[in-house]
Design a protein around this nucleic acid. Structure first.
Lengths: 137, 137
DNA sequence: GTGCTTGCAAACAATTTGCAGTGTC
DNA sequence: GACACTGCAAATTGTTTGCAAGCAC
């Protein structure tokens, strides 16, 4: 199947591909709407999936969140369980993939790691609410 | 809110808690049905969520899979992208959590890592289909 | 008896798909 | 002119929720 260059595909790419952005399909649509370049949500999904297949973006999903990441270079993420904000980490250990491949017998091994915790902003807001009470694990 | 011991909660616990099992809510229901101990799917979900909250089991979700893990001790997983089978790994590095917490300013940091690749069984089945052709990355 | 739990069905959210019309190559 | 792509609405899938009845404590 040959791929065609379309106006809509280009728009979705422009918003997310190659950017350090973490966003949902809905987010992409909203931005395009604001830019006066409305696209059907189904098409946004189709193009995001297309970009994933092509390896230009990545989809990251966890138990209670999911987003598309414009940066396809392997890296980990950290997410605040409180406000949901996502940040990039530059910690991706490709050696682990080799080690695990070796010990498990699997091939083409890669991995996804998402850290979770409470970000500094939410920590201080929590303190405001509870005085000097310490946040504990 | 005080929790009550119920027949259904006990049944769900018996199937999954403390076991090295990776299963969906549907799976749990099916097993209980087979054992003649039918429970409503909604109740299965409610009890699985309850067990997660209590830290007796864990929910692991990725872009194209999701399962409940009866083993609550921190550990990583590896999944075959071909057949979907999940295996446990004993590689969980708690030091990473400390390191990331320190560098990011987050607190209460923990993480989830899922490796993906092609398991030995699927590798050999692939070979059968394509002769001696080597599977590459 | 109080009120947490359950079953059932309806509600939901996120995502995909069928189809006919449109636009690319 | 093919046929990939789009928009729209309907369909799916996995999961949660409202509510009345049931059961644990």
């Amino acid at each position: 199947m040959k791929h065609r260059q379309t106006h809509q595909k280009a728009a979705v790419m422009r918003i997310i591909a190659g950017k350090d952005r973490h966003m949902s399909a809905e987010d992409v649509k909203t931005i395009l709407d604001q830019e006066g370049e409305s696209i059907s949500l189904a098409t946004v999904y189709r193009n995001l999936n297309y970009l994933c297949q092509e390896g230009m973006i990545r989809k990251v999903t966890g138990s209670d969140f999911s987003f598309f990441d414009g940066n396809a270079v392997p890296h980990d993420h950290i997410r605040c369980v409180c406000c949901g904000r996502i940040a990039d980490l530059d910690s991706y250990n490709a050696e682990d993939d080799q080690r695990i491949a070796h010990s498990s017998g699997f091939v083409s091994v890669h991995h996804t790691t998402v850290y979770e915790g409470i970000c500094e902003k939410c920590q201080s807001e929590e303190e405001k609410r509870h005085g000097t009470e310490r946040i504990k694990d």
